[in-house]
Amino acid sequence: MTGAVDADGDRRDRTMSDTDTHDPVESARAEVIDALERSAEVYGAKRSYGRLFGILLFEPEPVSLDGLAERSGYAKSTVSTAMTTLERFHLVHRRSLPGEGKKAFFEAETDLWYVFQQFLRQEVTREIRIMSRALDEAAEALEDAEGERAEYHLEQVRKLQRMYDRSDRLVSLLTGQPLDRLTDLLGRVTGGSDGE
């Protein structure tokens, strides 16, 4: 295997998926993993995170850090950092296997609606809470202030308050319903149906 450095600067040995094997299953798998790499970059994450998630996605059983390092060609430290981040965003789950002691194994979360809901519940809700508190305090201070500048600032704060209130309601709706139910509801509201 020859070493290569990916766009993140992470060193990765070439793996079998990097070569043209003319195996349609391997080609399809490689295509999806490459797309996941590029998708990770779209969201500001390292390409290695997308590659590792993709590798796990096609594994029928949980894989250890050593196994992921071997399959991906990345150093074990790179894999460990990636798994910590992917676990934080609910894209992978850490597992223990009988007879393996404290050794950690990982599997991909395949329900991406669940991943999205968890992101909304934890990251977006946290931002809403931080901003709502700050906006409430600012509004209270501005209500006691006088002058056009205070009025203008209060108007801007109230606009933001309305937006964050709506966002909070939307997050509650999205995190409290299964995707099928929301899709059906959206179809009824827009006049579409499931078959369209």
Rank of each mutant, 00 (worst) to 15 (best):
R47E: 02
A69D: 06
E146A: 01
F89L: 12
H153E: 14
V25Y: 14
Q161D: 08
A7W: 11
L120R: 08
T110Q: 12
F53C: 08
R126P: 00
T21W: 12
S172P: 00
E196N: 04
Q177V: 08
G192L: 15
M163E: 14
P60F: 10
G3C: 01
G67F: 04
T190V: 15
K159L: 15
V92S: 06
P24E: 13
D194C: 00
T190W: 01
V42E: 15
G99Y: 07
Q117E: 06
Y114L: 14
D168I: 02
D13Y: 15
P62G: 04
F58Q: 05
L57I: 10
L160P: 00
A104R: 11
E31Y: 14
K102Y: 03
A40C: 00
T183Y: 03
A104G: 03
A69H: 01
A141N: 10
E37G: 10
M163H: 06
E37R: 12
T21N: 10
E155L: 07
A82E: 07
S193T: 11
E155R: 12
Q177K: 09
T125D: 12
A30M: 14
E151A: 13
I33K: 09
A150K: 08
D136Y: 08
R88Y: 09
H90C: 00
S193V: 11
A150C: 10
T21V: 11
K46A: 04
G99I: 05
A145K: 05
Q177H: 12
V115I: 15
R169C: 07
V92Q: 06
L86W: 04
S72P: 06
L91D: 03
G67C: 04
M131S: 14
R162D: 13
L57Y: 15
S27C: 05
Q161C: 06
G195C: 02
S72M: 03
R129M: 13
E151S: 11
L186K: 05
S80P: 01
Y49M: 03
G44C: 12
D8Y: 06
P62C: 08
V124F: 02
G54P: 10
D10Q: 07
L68W: 05
R14A: 10
L182V: 09
G54H: 09
Q161M: 14
E100Q: 01
A4T: 00
M131V: 08
E143L: 06
R149V: 14
D136M: 13
K46R: 15
R149N: 09
L182A: 03
H93N: 02
M131Y: 11
D184L: 09
G101V: 02
K46S: 13
R14Y: 10
P24M: 07
G50T: 02
I55E: 13
V42R: 12
Q177A: 13
Q177E: 15
V42Y: 11
L52Y: 07
D66L: 07
V32N: 05
P178L: 07
D18R: 06
E87L: 06
S64K: 02
G50N: 11
H90Y: 08
R133G: 12
D8M: 05
G3L: 01
Y43M: 09
R149C: 00
Y114H: 11
H90M: 01
V157A: 13
